[in-house]
Design a protein around this nucleic acid. Structure first.
Lengths: 249, 249
DNA sequence: TAGTGGTCTAGACCACATT
DNA sequence: ATGTGGTCTAGACCACTAC
């Protein structure tokens, strides 16, 4: 027990070598995944963690700063260090890049219109790296911006990571927060593949647009803190009054 | 002279207060803009800079690390710290998000097919925040991926920031490197606004596609290290075999 | 072998938030 | 008044690169 968890003096030539602060960073991340501290909870202060890990306070600080940059933690001067929560505004600004032309980004209301479970196949199976025979939960949603219907999306979740979702009484519209609090999956990084397409007949009808009016489509693959592929989503959006906004640096 | 350039003891209540490492960071950035060290050149080591700025080596390190994260500098262990250069691969991977479906990102060849100068108006004037009567240089380019023509773009540059470009014998295809080396403008951050559109007749003809086939369009606004708006560009891309790829975190 | 950046430590002081 | 994170310093040692 009470082993020294970290090793300062590993030969740097060793293939497994990681700097101490990096080891601390990985370990703290793991502890969050294991729910030693739940979402929103405060961590011990830097000196307490330093003592527990047998490293200096400066090394802990470097690790916590990195996790703060990655939005996994947040810190409040004079108060403490907390596990980040994917709640409301914050998560939407971070993961929702669709904006009405000439307006500020806005949090869109979203309504789940169907929920079913089916065998994974095709793109879904491939992108989520599932095996033949594994099942996915499929959510179909539509969103409004400024009370106008403009977005349709289908969301595919591996059943193995979201057991019991079919029995949920209701699916809230802030999905990432829902994943985090009800299924312990914190979305950590996403990649969006964006294309211009023509709507299907069904989509054109739903959105109330002409079949020749192009849509912006993006397919998203989301990874959790642990690196698991937890969500595949395909979103179609009217592009006459909305755009996808990207900022680098 | 040899004034102390930085002040440790400013009251933190002061509205102008900046931490020392931040002051150093800003100052080094300014020195790069002023070409004290040119693109690709090595900086003095941390101790020399620390002495010059009258701060500790650790404070210099923190400043240089931030600039390294921002890709303004790069560091090589055992060698030194250098001013980043927007050259070839590196700049393309960073700023060129269009990918052929099912392939790795690839550096596209680009050909400038026209160059002219005109009065700024409409979107161009507004986005570049120019005044009525100011001029812009307009470059029209087309790019191939896998030897297939797939991208058309118009690039608008404020003449005041690019004097003499109309007299250049040739415009190279690595534009951002060209801006940096010939006009001292290092592109630091960009924002892309992405939409799905139908091609104009002219674009459909150039790209050899049907007028009903949608295109991916993005309009980009680029800022330099100094915060000046130096480029507005509008790009149209075939979306049947190409997509725009975004990764967060 | 010399010089550089990378890691780690220890300790001082400050600003901020809560009690 | 207390405890937290934020800043700053000084110094030791390591690993990498070039000569």
């Amino acid at each position: 027990m009470n082993d020294t968890k970290f090793h300062n003096k590993l030969s740097a030539g060793s293939p497994a070598y990681l700097p101490l602060y990096k080891q601390v960073e990985e370990y703290v991340k793991q502890l969050i995944v294991e729910q030693r501290w739940k979402v929103g909870e405060i961590l011990p202060n830097e000196f307490q963690l330093a003592e527990e890990f047998n490293v200096s306070q400066g090394t802990v600080r470097k690790a916590l700063s990195a996790l703060t940059d990655a939005k996994i933690l947040y810190r409040r001067q004079g108060v403490g260090t907390f596990v980040s929560e994917h709640t409301g505004q914050q998560a939407l600004y971070r993961f929702f890049p669709l904006v009405a032309d000439g307006k500020k980004p806005e949090l869109p209301m979203s309504e789940t219109i169907s929920r079913k479970i089916e065998l994974a196949q095709g793109d879904v199976l491939e992108n989520l790296q599932l095996k033949q025979g594994e099942k996915v939960i499929v959510l179909s949603r539509r969103r409004k911006i400024d009370s106008e219907l403009c977005i349709l999306e289908d969301i595919y979740l591996p059943e193995k990571y979201f057991e019991g979702m079919m029995e949920e009484p209701e699916i809230p519209h802030t999905l990432y927060h829902f994943y985090q609090t009800n299924y312990r999956h914190t979305v950590q990084d996403i990649s969006d593949c964006i294309k211009a397409i023509l709507p299907t007949k069904a989509d054109a009808k739903s959105l109330g647009i002409k079949p020749t009016e192009p849509l912006l489509q993006f397919t998203r693959l989301s990874k959790s803190l642990t690196g698991q592929l937890i969500e595949f989503r395909q979103t179609r959006c009217r592009s006459d009054n909305y755009h996808y906004l990207v900022k680098f640096d």
